[in-house]
Amino acid sequence: MKVRSRTLRLVLVVAAVLLLGGGSLGYVLHARQRDQPPQQVAADASFTLAEPGLYFRDEATGRIARQPGGRTPRLTGGPSCDRFYAAGERALCLRKLPGVPARTQAVVLDRRLKEIRRVAVAGIPNRARVSASGQVLSWTTFATGDSYATSAFSTRTAILNLRTGDLVKSIEDIPLTIDGARYHAPDVNYWGVTFARDDNRFYATVSSKGRTHLVEGDLRRWSAKALRTNVECPSLSPDNTRIAFKKKVSDDPKSPWRLYVLNLADLREHPVAETRSVDDQAAWLDDTTLAYALPGSDGRRSDIWATPADGTGTPRLTVAGGSSPGAVH
């Protein structure tokens, strides 16, 4: 009976993902189909973040790899992670732990990819971000068990400040303003945090009552306000002037999203040249180029593509068999 019960819970989790209606659900389903390494391993001693390049999760091994640029082949040997991001002096590695209910390890690493802190949280790994300084980190997991959710499924988004040591395991209780008024609802969910260079301002998606909003948050004041609707998985440009995001443009479950860029000065938006449905939190390789994961031709592993952020150009395949892209300079 215990085995049947655990199997049923796994089925319910996957079914709930389909019902949630946002928040990069495709990644969760895709992650369950990928080949997983037999065990979690640390980085090889020679593999560090000292060299610039595109760092990403190698889908074949589950370990972090680096693409130096040009025709140079990828270099492997990083730690095993389900989600990864690096900036400044720190990296964040999310690892799904075995067993039921689903649990995740959020592992903070230094530039040598040596562990400096570990936090265990509920749910399935989904999003990872590090501020430009490396001092503020955030992760999102999909979790089960909220009584308000008819699907029994929701998100958990945490923020860790390494300068102060403060850890907020769920930012759901941050005072939120929508349309100029304080907003209260039992179904508020946050995901996809991205940080400004000042390590105080941040952006994220908040979902409630079937709508998604882009919110701007203030860590010191511990407050958040909605800026506009239909914005998911924001990613702030290095110059802090634009946000790349996925926008729902269709009810077709096979192609609901389109990648857009929002100008924060006037809140005007434009689509990028990528016309396929992008269910990912795009990463800025620099101030002009976005990288993101799309399902590979084999239907199991992801590929990393890049496209200009200004809407011109043509998407190009950057890494075959990769996910969680992030540029280290």
Rank of each mutant, 00 (worst) to 15 (best):
R258W: 01
L97P: 07
A291I: 09
H30C: 03
L262F: 06
A60Q: 11
A43V: 05
C81D: 11
L75V: 15
A86G: 07
W191S: 13
V13P: 00
S277W: 02
T275R: 13
T140S: 15
L8F: 11
S302M: 11
Y27S: 09
A102G: 11
D239Q: 08
E232P: 02
V130L: 10
D146K: 14
D166R: 14
L94S: 10
R71T: 10
D287A: 14
V11F: 11
V206H: 00
Y148W: 15
V17W: 09
A309G: 15
V136Q: 07
P73V: 00
C93D: 10
A306E: 11
E216V: 12
S323R: 02
Y27C: 00
H184D: 13
P256A: 08
K248H: 06
Q40A: 12
L97A: 14
D199W: 07
D173N: 13
R276T: 13
K2A: 13
S151H: 14
R242Y: 05
R163F: 10
R66F: 01
G70L: 06
N161L: 08
S223Y: 04
T289A: 06
G326D: 00
V3D: 14
G192H: 10
T194K: 04
R221M: 06
G99N: 11
A226W: 03
R71F: 07
L227R: 06
V13H: 11
V215Q: 04
V188H: 02
V121N: 04
W191V: 04
Y183I: 09
R268S: 15
P79V: 10
R112S: 14
T288W: 08
Y55L: 02
R34G: 09
L236G: 03
L160I: 07
V119E: 15
A132R: 12
P73T: 02
V168S: 13
N200A: 06
T140Q: 06
A31L: 06
G134W: 00
L294S: 09
D280V: 08
S80G: 15
L264W: 02
E115T: 15
K254F: 07
Y183E: 10
P315I: 03
V108Y: 06
K96P: 00
R90N: 13
